[in-house]
Simulated assay, not measured.
Amino acid sequence: MLMSNSDRAAKLHYMANGFRVLSPGDHVVCAVTGHRILLEDLRYWSVERQEAYATAAGAAEAMKPR
């Protein structure tokens, strides 16, 4: 039986120019909003924090001092 990656969160290692898939899946979860981000739509992430963001605004919000 073939396993599908649909509806499963991927585990990624974020690097400066891309990411490596550690565990297969079709999406990741935005660290700010909690929204699902399909891997093919993933554009924003933090290498330092190893987290993904759905939008540029979400990435900027995450970088604000707390």
Rank of each mutant, 00 (worst) to 15 (best):
L2A: 13
C30V: 07
G58V: 02
G18H: 09
A56T: 09
F19E: 02
H13F: 00
Y14C: 05
M1Y: 09
Y53T: 07
L12F: 11
R36K: 15
M1K: 15
A52E: 02
H27S: 06
A62D: 11
A59K: 15
S6Y: 09
E61K: 12
R66I: 06
T33M: 02
I37T: 03
C30G: 09
R49W: 01
R36W: 02
P65M: 03
A57T: 07
V28F: 08
G58C: 09
A52L: 03
H27D: 00
N5L: 06
E48K: 14
G18Q: 05
L42V: 08
Y53K: 06
A31E: 08
A62M: 01
A16R: 13
G58N: 14
A54G: 10
R49C: 05
E40L: 08
T33W: 01
A52C: 09
D7C: 05
T55Y: 05
C30N: 10
A52T: 08
G34V: 03
L12G: 13
V47I: 07
P24H: 12
Y14S: 04
A56L: 12
N17W: 03
L22S: 12
H13Y: 06
R20W: 01
K11Q: 13
R49L: 07
L38T: 07
S46Q: 05
G58K: 04
F19N: 05
V21Y: 03
D7A: 08
R8W: 06
V21N: 08
S46F: 00
A60P: 04
H13I: 01
Y14E: 00
